[in-house]
Amino acid sequence: MLPRRIYQFFLIYLLGILVLLSLKYGLQLSDYVIPGPKTLWQTALEVFPRYALDVWNTLQVALIGQVMSIVLALAIGIPGRSTTWFGNFIKAAAYNVQAYPIVAIAPIIFILLGDGFLSRLLIAAMICYFPILLTVLGVMSEPVADVEHFYRCTGRMRWQLEVKIRAFENLHKLTTVIAGSATLAMAGTIVAEFIAANAGIGYSIRIALYQSDLARILVALLLIGICLSVYQGLLEHTGSLVKKAWTGSA
């Protein structure tokens, strides 16, 4: 699973580079606009160690943000599954807020909290929070009648058991959305770094952008891609281990 993800990313990345190089040579563009293979290679050797650390920094923020959003989505989604006024309020609020582009309020966060770690973390968490919350709400609100019937009619149903049944029956959905939200968390962090942060790969890309240095941007994209592929692959692998342990299936 993990090598396949990285291999697929490399293929797409190489295709992208080939398209850029075709454009460069087809339209006879200068190295200033699109760098040649030699410049790309030299830039990679030059910035790779520093950018690797930057990506690691970004990934740490994204990871903490994602964990925060998962915990928060479960904390809100589980009580929100009920058909009480609270549950209905949570659902209505979640559906409405998720329709709004959260990135647009990033400047407000920077104004209020400054350009440090906290702002990046908050934006990353907010961006991946709503898709996870909606999935948790959807999964937890949907009764699994064939399984729950016995526990209900014999008076054995407790909220913990209800949550366990629904989570178990929708494990694939939950692990998929958690793995998918890694991209959102990473995107959120990078966007935050673009806007006003003082660290991370997004910040390095912003500097490269100001210098119109496409080679550096391409190296940064390569590192982001590898890092995200590894992270998502690990999440999927963890998900399949959890599934295997819980369902006993191979």
Partner: peptide, 15 residues
């Protein structure tokens, strides 16, 4: 005493 109803499509959790 309760009236129980059971049908043939019910499942036990697989955990």
């Amino acid at each position: 005493e309760p009236i129980l109803y059971t049908y043939n499509l019910e499942r036990l959790p697989d955990w």
